[in-house]
């Protein structure tokens, strides 16, 4: 009797949280999956079941492959660089020096600023002719450049902004992890004849692995999730050269109102991210030492 009551209590207590999760996460996800099996209603034509037709279209859609490729380049280009930068900055501001608090704040500032504001600042940097970059390059006699308007440079230009923004954020995690490593470990290693590089490679880096795993999963998610700066900087152009998967989903669903195809793309994005996260766990698991 008692046990049964406890059971009811338990469910009652978690019900509100459960309801919210189902309402706003799981049900929309399932509805997206369901919606991807139907056609988009157009005018007087209601939506009807089409099976996997949307997925067939996706496989034949060159734009999809283009943005997927862009996204891969974006992820491969930004994640390692921003993580390495984050680690370097964390190591730098973890040692005592004058003005350390100021340096930490300076590194963290890009993260605090809203991405829209950040994008605006960078828009000014990149402006052809009188932007900061062109003015500096102009001193060396270089001509006018158009990083954002050029198919070859638009994506790299966006990646630079993303790295600049993400590195400060990841630095915080690395800094916290570095401070959790007892300083005696480095001292003991030093006594045993280890130089700074050996200490970093054999002590610090392995002990940071849990953080590296955490940061890398976050970085992958962010690489597929962040699109705000594309709105400001390039709008995905020129000719989708700087469009990413999520931006393409946005355009498909809310500019062209092709909701069914948008749902299909979303399902693919979701599956991709699950796969990547799980893959990283397996990849890292053997190398991660948890306390």
């Amino acid at each position: 009797m008692k046990i049964k009551r406890d059971w009811i209590w338990g469910w009652t207590l978690i019900a509100p949280a459960l309801a919210l999760i189902f309402l706003f996460t799981h049900i929309p996800a399932l509805m997206t999956l369901w919606g991807s099996l139907f056609s988009t209603p157009r005018g007087r034509k209601p939506s009807h079941f089409v099976g996997l037709a949307n997925y067939e279209r996706l496989i034949q859609d060159p734009t999809f492959w283009k943005v997927l490729g862009n996204n891969a380049i974006y992820a491969l280009g930004t994640i390692p660089v921003s993580m390495a930068l984050a680690l370097a900055m964390a190591l730098l501001v973890n040692r005592p020096f004058k003005g350390r608090a100021l340096a930490r704040m300076a590194y963290f500032t890009p993260t605090v600023l809203p991405l829209i504001a950040v994008a605006n600042i960078w828009l000014f940097f990149y402006t052809p002719g009188f932007g900061l970059i062109d003015q500096v390059l102009g001193l060396f006699g270089a001509g006018q450049s158009n990083f954002l308007g050029n198919a070859g440079t638009a994506l790299p230009a966006i990646m630079v902004v993303a790295i600049w923004k993400e590195a400060g954020f990841f630095m915080i995690f690395y800094l916290a992890a570095l401070q959790a490593i007892p300083p005696q470990l480095a001292e003991a290693a030093k006594i045993e004849g280890a130089g700074a590089w050996t200490i970093f490679r054999r002590i610090t880096l392995p002990l940071l692995m849990p953080t590296t795993l955490f940061v890398s999963i976050n970085a992958v998610i962010n690489a597929f999730r962040l699109v705000d700066h594309i709105f400001i900087l390039t709008g995905g152009g020129p000719d989708n050269a700087s469009s990413l998967l999520l931006y393409y989903i946005y355009e498909t669903s809310f500019r062209f109102w092709d909701t069914a195809y948008g749902a299909t793309l979303s399902v693919v994005l979701l599956a991709l991210m699950c796969l990547l996260a799980i893959g990283q766990f397996f990849l890292f698991d053997r190398k991660v030492h948890y306390k």
Binding site: A189, I191, E192, G193, L207, M209
Partner: peptide, 20 residues
Amino acid sequence: RPADKRNLSMVFQSYALFPH
């Protein structure tokens, strides 16, 4: 001379073993 060049060994109160 820095610690790694003094040719001595040391045992710390907290042992300072490398956990990984």
